[in-house]
Structure formats: C-alpha cells, structure tokens
Design a protein around this nucleic acid. Structure first.
Lengths: 168, 168
DNA sequence: ATTTCTGCAAAATCTTTGCATTTAC
DNA sequence: GTAAATGCAAAGATTTTGCAGAAAT
C-alpha cells in the first residue's frame, strides 16, 4: 500500500535522474558521482525513507559507491529544492518521499507497524481551499497524517485477542 | 487568532491543575512544586509553545520557582499522557498546545511570521472518517497543518511591493 | 521511613558546518 | 586551472538518561 500501486502515476517527460541533471546544470552545479548514485538509489524504490535508511541502501564506507553522511544530507536538500522529493517529520525525524512523477496525496500512519500508507482525496483539497478562503489564508500546501491502525494490524490484533480468549 | 477567541471552549468540570493532580494521584505519582508550577504556567496562556519557550516563562536558574530543563521535558510528557496537552512537530521541534478544555481543531501555519492559527472543520472530520473507512483504516486521530501566508503577512507583502513600485 | 522526583552532568540522536582535499568542468 | 563538491571531524540543536541528593507521602 506504500507502493505506487494504488496511486496514479503522473506522466513526466524526464526520468528523475535527467530531471536532476537538468536542475543541476541550470544552477551551475556539478553532476557528481555521488549525486547520480543518490538519485538512482532514491528512485529505485518508492518507499518512504530517512537519511539513515538511504545510507544503508548504499555500499558501506570504504567500498566504491559509498557516499558520506554529510553529502547524503546535502543532496537530500537538493532533491527537495529540485522538486524531486518531499520532506516531512515523523516521530521527530525527517522522512522523504517521491514528489516528482507522483500525485499530491496524504498519509495514514499505522501506530502498530509504523508504516505509512498513501491515499488521494480531491475532496480534501477542495475542503482545504474552502476553509482557507473562509479564513483569508493563502494556501501553499498542507500536510495531513491520519494515525491509527491499518487493516493488517487490526486483524493481527483480533487474532491475538481471540487466542487469549481460547486460552482461558 | 491563535488565542481561544475564535474557538468554542469545551466545558470541563475540573481546572487543568485539579485534573492533573487527580491524574497524578490515580497513578501514585507525587504532587510536586515543579509539577504545579508547570501546569499553572502552561495554562495561564493559550499560545502554542515549545520546551524552550516554557522555560523562558519561568524564573531563571537559581531563583525560586525555577524548574530544570530535564524536569520540564519529563513533565511535558506527563501532560500529554494526562490528556492536558497535545504535542506535534514543527520545523523539527516539539510544539505543545492545550488539549484539555479545548475542542479538536487544525492549524494554518504562516511561513512568513511562523505563527500558527487554529480553525475547526467538522466537514474535515467527516471526510477523514469516510476516507479511513474506504481504506479500512481505524482512525485514532490526525494532524493537519495547512501552510501558506496569513492575511496580515499577505497585506504586509503587498504594501512592500507597492512601495517598491513607487520607488521606480 | 520509604519511594519518587529533581537537578546536574553527561549522553544520545539527528543534522549541519568548517576546512583541506578531490573532482567536475 | 578554477570553482565547486566531498569527506572528515567537529560542532549544533534538541531531547533523554544515570545517578546522588532532595522532597513528598
């Protein structure tokens, strides 16, 4: 459910890598091996991730293809500036998700398994804009996280509960 | 707008202080001077605040009534457990707001002045619950922050812009 | 008298920065 | 060759923890 399977893909002309190269060149920044390695890794999977998880997906220190922690942080900021990633906070840490090529969406956060699930709701956007108009607030964007328990965890919970019942 | 002025007050039988004392006693915890000083300070104003701001509102180190930083953090967690405060993240830091005695609401966050403004929308709750049902997700709560520019900052911006125009 | 709480100092966590060296252009 | 980027080490910022002494019950 955290995969793109349930969300429409937004058609884009350039691959994330090409889009990033274009962004770098337009700003006189250099196309380095580290930046390319990171853009490739980040867009090889759709899951949400933090800086630590990204580092774990790359070769470890000393091995070719490794990228240092400061460079990972610096490059993640560049991805956000370039419109490739969106950043938000979860449990006090920065979490990133694909923005380029993916539609606006919001999240369920399961407090049992700690996973994020995406959903889209045009009605929500309409309501947001209406409420903002009512309060004369100029909307730039929003962040909504609905927390609770996902279906899988709810079932697991029920099983555990039934099991306890049988034991009595 | 961050004041309770625009939100209905939820009638509660106990003052926050009494509610907290009750909470402490029910859990065999002690009613200390620090806890009382903090509950009084926190509920003397309705603005959102972080741990630093709360400390600044108390007497400084050495003076009577001062509370140490670890105790402030520990007590803020207790307030959340007791249902007196709600905690959320803004720009990577923990921000607290009154929960006890105040209705469910969401926030506008002005990226110019960095202020938070509260609003209520029953429609939003209904929409949230509907979307959650559609995805078989059991809702426990949610956090919505709409970011953009508040009316005051938009006006200030327009004035600045007009001023620049006049100078040309 | 007992047990919890506080304050201090230190640690933990996540992120950013200064600077010398390396790399892209 | 020159300017920008990287990696290292160190610092920053926020929050948490271990523990001895203080305070509440």
């Amino acid at each position: 459910m955290a995969t793109p399977a349930n969300l429409e893909h937004v058609p884009v002309s350039l691959s994330p890598r090409d889009r990033f190269v274009e962004f770098l060149q337009s700003r006189g920044m250099r196309v380095t091996q580290q930046r390319l390695a990171l853009v490739d890794q980040v867009f090889s999977r759709h899951e949400h991730f933090d800086a630590d998880q990204l580092m774990e997906q790359l070769p470890e220190s000393g091995k070719p293809g490794h990228v240092s922690r400061p460079t990972v942080y610096r490059t993640l900021s560049e991805f956000v500036d370039a419109g490739l990633l969106r950043k938000f906070m979860l449990n006090g840490r920065s979490v990133y998700e694909h923005d380029y090529g993916y539609p606006q969406h919001d999240h369920f956060h399961c407090t049992e398994c700690n996973k994020l699930f995406e959903f889209q709701s045009p009605e929500l956007i309409a309501l947001r804009d209406q409420v903002a108009r009512d309060h004369r607030f100029r909307v730039a964007g929003h962040r909504l996280i609905i927390n609770g328990v996902c279906e899988a965890c709810a079932k697991a919970r029920r099983r555990a509960s039934n099991h306890r019942m049988n034991m009595i």
